[in-house]
Amino acid sequence: MTSLAPGSPNPAGAAVSAQPTSQAHGTSAHAADDHGGHVDARLFGLATFLVADGMTFAGFFAAYLTFRAVNPLPADSSYELELILPTINTALLVISSFTFHRAGSNLRSGNQSACRSWLLGTVALGVAFLAGQMVEYFNLPFGLTDNLFASTFYALTGFHGLHVTLGVICILIVWWQARQGGRISQHDHFGLEAAELYWHFVDGIWVVLYGILYLL
């Protein structure tokens, strides 16, 4: 780490200096709670959290795939899953990612009421997904503890369903804040962006889950 030319006795840009910068507290993390003036790392933090959350799913997926490879399904055909409902559900979630995106772009262009409508549309799609999931649960020929496949099926879809439920609640909060004005507006849309990032994540996880659970 010796970067200075030999022979420079007292180099400019000394290693330890206390040069004052132009702004009072600069961009250093000044009491990181006030959001004025310092780097906003919240979306970055959320993305890191979603990586962690994604690893939980990755662990479940790895367990499921290993179970599939090593502990084969029971011979009878009751474990063939019905495909129509989950496929409709997949479509609902994918569409909801687009509706959420529309909500965001409307907010940024200042169209608050359109933004709120798109948010409600997204909530409706999410709730429809959850309802579809419930219908599927009640029509399945197996229960949680019937066998390894059944347990894994419920664990994976249930854990994902929890995420969707949480997402729906978050969108409702964002919608409420947008309605009140104030916390969500054209110039302050962290809440909306955070919920959107999370929602896309939950959608992405579902697509993988659909692939390995229903199609494979």
Partner: peptide, 20 residues
């Protein structure tokens, strides 16, 4: 809940637990 993810008696797999 007496599921059998890692319970060989219920068709589960203990080695998967060790890997995870």
């Amino acid at each position: 809940a007496h599921t059998g993810f890692f319970n060989p008696a219920l068709g589960g797999n203990v080695v998967v637990y060790q890997h995870l």
